[in-house]
């Protein structure tokens, strides 16, 4: 039996086919095994440190068992509220401009290029921008607001991109109907497009905020301090943040501090999981209502 058309002179047999499928499975399995190993190790090392006082106490440089995350959690809360307040209006505004006002204009092309470029800039370079611009040129010093502004710029491309995708899911026929009824461009956007796109925009915004919570490198650069006993009491206060505290504990040679780092990671990962869960729930609810 000879096949009329042969793709190769030496055909791989059934064995090669099967081996390749297994290889592909391995490609997915290895990184996920690493993830499982990582989660297990972190939980095993850190879970015994979790307690209410661990979440509320100030850190300690001498006694690991008395050290807590209090100021770090407060710092992260401040950062996140400020970052969201700064980044969300600007990011969503930019997305509305690109999708509803300037489709296919020359400026839009330039803006798109800038956004694509910004999305690829390493986070530490945003830290350098924050250090040169906010901390020194604008003389804000190493304050919560300087950190929040830096993180806001960092997540801006993510918010813009996801908000644009959400706006794009709104059907053009709805826009045409609104404009045909005599609505102005803004009335159409405000009353027809935005309400429909809102769940999608929120999902993207939540995921962007989650990204900001875990960022460490830019905060090290803009001067989040490693050791502080109190949470911030204003936008111009010194501060630390959850990932900063984990970093400091990880750098400490004493075993007990490493366990604190693991417990801190558990808190961080749980927070991120809950946030991502909310985002996914929002997306699913929205999709099922739509279809």
């Amino acid at each position: 039996m000879r096949r009329p058309i042969d793709l190769t002179s030496a055909r791989p047999g059934v064995f090669a086919e099967k081996a390749f499928v297994w290889l592909c499975r391995l490609g997915a399995a290895i990184p996920l095994t690493m993830l499982a190993w990582l989660l297990y190790r972190v939980a095993a090392a850190g879970v015994h440190r979790l307690s209410w006082s661990f979440l509320t106490d100030p850190p300690s440089q001498l006694d690991a068992s008395a050290a807590g995350l209090g100021p770090a959690l407060m710092g992260t809360l401040w950062l996140i509220v400020l970052t969201a307040t700064i980044a969300l209006p600007i990011g969503i505004g930019a997305a509305i401009y690109l999708e509803e006002y300037s489709r296919r204009s020359k400026l839009a092309g330039l803006l798109e290029l800038a956004i694509a470029n910004l999305a690829g800039v390493p986070s530490i370079v945003y830290g350098m921008l924050g250090l040169g611009l906010f901390v020194h040129a604008l003389a804000m010093g190493e304050t919560v607001i300087a950190g929040a502004l830096t993180l806001a710029l960092l997540i801006l491309p993510i918010i813009i991109t996801s908000a644009r995708e959400a706006l794009r899911t709104v059907k053009d026929s709805l826009r045409e109907a609104a404009l045909g009824l005599g609505a102005t461009r803004w009335q159409c956007t405000r009353q027809v497009v935005l309400p429909m796109a809102l769940p999608g925009i929120l999902t993207g915004a939540i995921l962007a905020i989650a990204r900001a919570i875990g960022e460490t490198a830019p905060l090290v650069v803009v001067g989040a301090v490693a050791f502080i006993l109190y949470g911030p009491d204003g936008v111009d206060a010194k501060y630390t943040a959850l990932p900063m505290q984990i970093f400091q504990w990880t750098s400490n040679p004493k075993r007990a501090f490493l366990d604190n780092a693991a417990a801190g990671i558990l808190v961080l990962m749980t927070t991120l999981l809950v946030i991502n869960g909310v985002a996914i729930w929002l997306r699913n609810r929205y999709q099922s209502r739509r279809s």
Binding site: L35, L38, G214, P243, T250
Partner: peptide, 10 residues
């Protein structure tokens, strides 16, 4: 979505 500081610890 795992923050890079976590990979560093691991």
């Amino acid at each position: 979505g795992v923050p890079t500081i976590v990979f560093g610890y691991f």
